[in-house]
Nucleic acid binder design. Structure first.
Length: 468
RNA sequence: GCGCCUCUAGCUCAACGGCAGAGCAACGGACUCUUAAUCCGCAGGUUCUGGGUUCGAAUCCCAGGGGGCGCACCA
């Protein structure tokens, strides 16, 4: 039998439950519906068969008496996992289960492989990640998270659109990797005989667009970083980056706080979440505190990037923080923060004012010397977003790039390279601009209560299977 | 990259030095209101791979592979 080329579906399982959910047991609604999906359960009782059909919206029972079901024996022989299309009257059974009484049905696709245990489902995480096409049917959670991620993206786009942000797409191939400190993937364009890098951040292109007069731009950008994997790191992940002309980092604080609260209340109905077994309240206003004040809170030591390097190295050593030769005071302070302080943060907090040395694209702090106007927003001990008052001065940007180039020459593969075209763009004038980056995967983790980034990425990076 | 844990039937799991098993799925049969349907029957294995120890290895040891977690790296 040849599988049909199409099937005219008139109703989803969820819409049937929505419309007919209140029917008394034993009701014939008089309404005919065509549904399609996968047979997930099957109960055959001689001259009467029941099946549970699952579609993209949910489940609906099929009611199939031998007397009225075409090709009844074939229907009874359906395998769990087979795709079928069914047309029939919407009824409730004597026990009150909403069902479609099969008046006509067709096999849309047969499964040749056994589906996972209908009760236990798929437990092996390796199989879940590798065979997401099975996981999505077998695991309610997998489906729910995938849908939630889509919702998050829709809501972000709508929210930004309402605020007159313009979505753009910038290159994934970068001749010079920039916009973040990270090791890139490399590739090669044959026709141009050109080595290219997969982007580690869209930042420098987006700011070029602000130079070009796009005052509010954003990109939901897949970025690629050649790093280790962990429950919080996948080599390719998704960042929201946005830039707003005439704004500074305090505007970005207000923006990201409002956005995340909007997402939580829309998606979860509340800002009072539970994450990793702990209560987590996203209710604004979020705490705003400088990095050095936080370090002092957690270590008792008041550090300053103006302190002698040796003293900072000693303080790091006192707190068991591994340091490397050549690290300047800014890097030492950052390292001290990341090792001693960041993991302890739980409720949302804006960690403000970073050392200039580790922030080559951020503008000098208007008050604190040696610091820049930058914050990271940390939630549940994880960095969720990063923002600054953008550095607009081409001369200062050139000096920062050159400092990075020295580090790069010294073997730091993550240091930035000089991007001459970006400097040229700045020479045309970048207005005061606030920029923000938000890790979408981590945001979805937060909103769905998942603690593994692989659970919010449909096809996470894995080693290939060995050939069977 | 390093350390710890893990890998048994399509799926979920037992057996932990002595004949490799169960439930679900599949297959055959019974059954007209089930919903993890039930009942009867049948079949299903390179115990991740390769070595080793042993009378005997899924089990212990070594090496390799996949995965998880931690560390390192890293927004």
């Amino acid at each position: 039998m040849t599988a049909p080329y199409r099937y005219e579906v008139t109703r989803s399982a969820a819409s049937l439950h929505d419309e007919f959910g209140g029917l008394e047991p034993g009701t014939e609604s008089g309404t005919t519906a065509s549904v399609a999906g996968r047979v997930m359960l099957r109960r055959v009782q001689g001259k009467l068969a029941f099946a549970t059909l699952q579609d993209g919206s949910g489940r609906i029972q099929l009611f199939a008496p031998a007397a009225t079901t075409p090709r009844f024996e074939e229907f009874c022989a359906l395998s769990i996992g087979d795709w079928v299309g069914v047309t029939g009257e919407v009824i409730t059974t004597r026990r009150g289960e909403l069902s479609v009484a099969v008046a006509d049905w067709v096999l849309l696709a047969a499964t040749r492989r056994s589906f996972p245990d209908k009760w236990h489902g798929l437990a092996d995480v390796d199989t879940r990640y590798r065979q997401r096409y099975v996981d999505l049917w077998a695991s309610d959670d997998a489906r729910a998270v995938a849908l939630a991620r889509s919702r998050v993206l829709v809501l972000i786009r709508r929210w930004l659109d309402e605020r007159h942000f313009v979505e753009v797409e910038t290159p994934v191939f970068h001749p010079i990797p920039g916009g973040a400190t990270a090791r890139p993937f490399t590739t090669h364009h044959d026709a141009l005989d050109l080595d290219l890098y997969l982007r580690i951040a869209p930042e420098l292109y987006l700011k070029r667009l602000v130079v070009g007069g796009m005052e509010r731009v954003y990109e939901i950008a897949r970025v690629f970083r050649n790093e280790g994997l962990s429950p919080r790191h996948n080599p390719e992940f998704t960042m929201l980056e946005l830039y707003q002309a005439y704004a500074d980092y305090t505007d970005m604080m207000a923006l990201v706080e409002e956005l995340v609260v909007h997402l939580a209340t829309t998606l979860c109905g509340t800002t009072a979440l539970t994450y990793d077994g702990r209560p987590l309240d996203l209710a604004p206003p979020w705490r705003r505190v400088t990095m050095v004040a936080l370090i002092e809170q957690y270590t008792g030591v008041l550090v300053d990037v103006a302190m002698p390097v040796d003293e900072l190295r000693r303080i790091c050593g006192d707190h068991g923080v591994h340091v490397e030769a050549g690290w300047g005071p800014g890097k030492l302070v950052l390292e001290l923060y990341e090792k001693t302080t960041e993991p302890h943060l739980w409720e949302p907090v804006f960690v403000c004012d970073y050392p200039k040395e580790v922030s080559p694209l951020a503008r000098d702090h208007r008050e604190a010397p040696g610091m820049v106007e930058r914050f990271e927003v940390v939630v549940a001990g994880r960095e969720l977003g990063n923002a600054f008052s953008e550095l607009t001065d081409p001369d200062e940007q050139r000096r920062r790039f050159e400092e990075q180039a020295v580090l790069r020459g010294g073997g730091d593969e993550e240091a930035m390279a000089v991007d001459a075209d970006y400097l040229r763009a700045l020479e045309y004038g970048l207005p005061p601009t606030g920029g923000l980056g938000v890790g979408i995967d981590r945001l979805v983790m937060l909103l769905t209560g998942t603690t593994a980034i692989r659970d919010v990425i449909l096809f996470p990076t894995l080693r290939p299977e060995q050939e069977a």
